[in-house]
Amino acid sequence: MFSLFVHEGEKMNKTKVASSILLVVSIIMILYALIFTPADWIVYAIAIIFIPFFILSLGLLTMAKPKNDEKEERIQEPFIGY
């Protein structure tokens, strides 16, 4: 019972951990470009890559979680109801 709970927790946490790391990395890179004003092309690259990743990671962390009994349905059989 306890091991099942831990396994569920680990699967969910993979997305959360990846998104948190991405969020922290994006914020650090954007702040680096803001504070240290590197060469122009570096600033463009940071802006183009890390602004979308910032929004993506923020969204993945803050999005609502489905109820466990509905989750299976939505992943396995997505076209019911059309």
Partner: peptide
């Protein structure tokens, strides 16, 4: 929409 659930269908 930004704070709503987004699931990943198996396809």
């Amino acid at each position: 929409f930004f704070f709503k659930e987004s699931s990943f269908p198996k396809t």
